[in-house]
Design a protein around this nucleic acid. Sequence first.
DNA 1: TCAGTAACGCACTAGTTAGTTACTTCTTGC
DNA 2: GCAAGAAGTAACTAACTAGTGCGTTACTGA
Lengths: 212, 212
Amino acid sequence: MRVVEEQPRARDANATRARILAAAKSEFARLGLAGARVDEIARHACANKRMIYHYFGGKEDLFRAVLVEAYLDIRNAEQELELGHLPPREALERLVRFTWAYYLDNPEFITLVNSANLHRGKHLEKSERLRTASRRFVSMVQEILDRGVADGVFRPGIDPVQLNITIAAIGYYYLTNRFTGTILFERDFMEDKALEDRLAFNIDTVLRLVLA
Amino acid sequence: MRVVEEQPRARDANATRARILAAAKSEFARLGLAGARVDEIARHACANKRMIYHYFGGKEDLFRAVLVEAYLDIRNAEQELELGHLPPREALERLVRFTWAYYLDNPEFITLVNSANLHRGKHLEKSERLRTASRRFVSMVQEILDRGVADGVFRPGIDPVQLNITIAAIGYYYLTNRFTGTILFERDFMEDKALEDRLAFNIDTVLRLVLA
DNA sequence: TCAGTAACGCACTAGTTAGTTACTTCTTGC
DNA sequence: GCAAGAAGTAACTAACTAGTGCGTTACTGA
């Protein structure tokens, strides 16, 4: 007769590593690098704290790993958009919608980026994978702009990096500062209607910026 | 014969309070609420740690005081712009330039706002002074928009709050994420030329958004 | 001038916190 | 089937950190 395994958890290095990374992402996003607690991360990961030091080295190295994963995730999602198949105007609108939806669906991403910048980017410096992914992304936007100019729907001379920054900015700022925004401007930034209005305003902003 | 006072510092409650507040602003901006150290704030303020608890209550109350002061500072500066005396288009351009310059000259403001939002705005909730100042600011922008529509230079129906958010966003995002931006996009975000280019791009963005 | 009060300072504490030591248990290549 | 290394655990530590108890010193008003 077989006895179902009970106490001694099945050993699985990859799964443990992944649980730690997920718990760390959540804790670092919620509390920042200094505010997050290694013991809490271990507890949420259902792992022993020792495993964090075993797999990642230390708190800062874990933070570094979380950041790299978060950036690779968004760049991969962007790549799956296949904007090359759409007419330039639709491609651009879709990019604005995607960026907005990604921030809404992955709120940890925004606070992690804020934390990375609070620490002056020192946890990102080495990663060549990220640079490659970013380069591919800028080329994608450049290609949309080129096609738009060729079709006569976009005006020429727009810097794809500046455009990217603006597309990110108008969504990011609204969401990251939603708490102070709600207090200062006395409206609920997260109401369905408010979110719809903001997305529409942002699409309008970007199209007016590029249309010929 | 008079002896020049030496060790026992001249007592000045206001000056000590102000030194603590200034040191706290700097430390909280640099390291966040969780990362800042009360002992370090006291040391930088050349004050005894006991005084922080005497004047402000505790670390979180000190953080609250820093935030309120930072917001009042920017709202006061905005008020001194006297945009009502300028033609609408010039007034709006001046507001974009001012916002950009303020973020550049007061980098602590941005990281403090980020910290306030990381903590879900709970350190701001009570302040009625801030709400009043914000209301006055929104009216100012509304008035510029109204004059622009009356003159036929701006299109009608623009929400002043959305416009405000966008004006802040396109400067704020560029500057707060300058470290990760510099790494990912492989250009120095803080070079003189880069800053000029960004400001020009932002003015263009806002004008294209509102012009009739 | 002097008592009362506000400003200031020292030294301490109770509780955390990142990181470690020393060990047991499981898995796998041979 | 077994040696060796990898996965996992518990208990510990040294350093730190927000907050305080309590005494001292300088103003100020009556």
